[in-house]
Design a protein around this nucleic acid. Structure first.
Length: 263
DNA sequence: ACCTAAACCTGGGCGC
DNA sequence: TGCGCCCAGGTTTAGG
């Protein structure tokens, strides 16, 4: 599923392609990913607008438009932005000159939105921003009584981390997913803070995790799935201590950990 | 205010 | 081979 590293990989790939292009229209094969605006009005709002660039805010892609407006795309779980269509094509963005960018989404959890003004996405700090310090992270965690795993998935606390990287960061920090967030020691908070940044950085370097659906805009898989240490490894031996990786459900999500390496 | 759980979706994997 | 069941989970919404 696309989390920060996957969305960032796509952003870097499509930015040079779309920047400066003028949207001439949409080809809507299935309108169900278009949210908060009718397909007809979306097309009217986009037609004739120039794309100024592509920003990433957590897992969202934001396309600022000229003379005004913002196109916002969230890939959900199986959403894709592609240079060539695939079998799950839903919406095609057509540019002046005839070039196209394709949005596909098998499970329809992705969202295409439009805002006249800067989109209010209600997100917590970006992991790579200067606001995300170990100290501030600790202050936020101290207010949360729920499990650290669920706090990492809360986009209002820290934005961009999803299920795969939450699991992996907790393994790297040696912290059990069900530990209460407000129970972590200062040392643990620092380790977790570093683990989050490290795992996201490495995953961007590897162009994301193609565990199931994710591919980049060219249709190519990432390679971070080869580096996963706990996610999806239920019953398989921990790479550090050989203890079988366990799977529990937290917040209705698959949660993987090593019962020996994580405390 | 805070937290939990259901709902949204459907392709793919699995068991029979 | 084919059918049916169940799982995957980011975000929103509803309920406690």
């Amino acid at each position: 599923m696309p989390e920060l590293p996957e969305v960032e990989t796509i952003r870097r790939e499509i930015a040079p392609f779309v920047k400066g292009k003028i949207i001439s229209g949409l080809e809507i094969k299935d309108p169900r990913n278009i949210k908060g605006i009718s397909p007809a009005l979306l097309e009217k709002k986009l037609a004739g607008k120039k794309i100024l660039g592509v920003d990433r805010r957590a897992k969202y892609l934001v396309f600022p438009l000229s003379p005004a407006g913002f196109l916002v795309v969230h890939l959900g779980m199986t959403g894709r932005l592609l240079f060539a269509p695939d079998p799950y094509l839903k919406v095609t963005f057509v540019f002046k000159g005839g070039e196209k960018l394709y949005f596909s989404d098998a499970r329809l959890f992705g969202k295409i939105r439009y805002f006249d003004a800067d989109p209010p996405l209600d997100l917590g700090p970006e992991p790579f921003s200067k606001e995300f310090t170990a100290q501030k992270f600790g202050e936020m965690l101290a207010k949360k009584k729920t499990s650290i795993k669920l706090v990492l998935l809360d986009q209002k606390i820290l934005s961009g981390v999803g299920n795969i990287y939450a699991n992996e960061a907790l393994f790297r920090a040696g912290i059990l997913p069900k530990r209460r967030a407000d129970d972590l020691s200062e040392t643990e908070v620092k380790k977790l803070h570093k683990a989050i940044l490290d795992v996201l950085e490495e995953a961007i370097e590897k162009r994301g995790t193609s565990d199931s659906w994710y591919v980049d805009a060219s249709g190519k898989k990432g390679s971070f799935q080869e580096r996963l240490q706990v996610y999806g490894r239920k019953g398989e031996p921990c790479f550090k201590c050989k203890t079988p990786i366990e799977r529990i459900s937290l917040g209705q999500r698959g949660t993987y950990f090593c019962p020996k390496c994580q405390k």
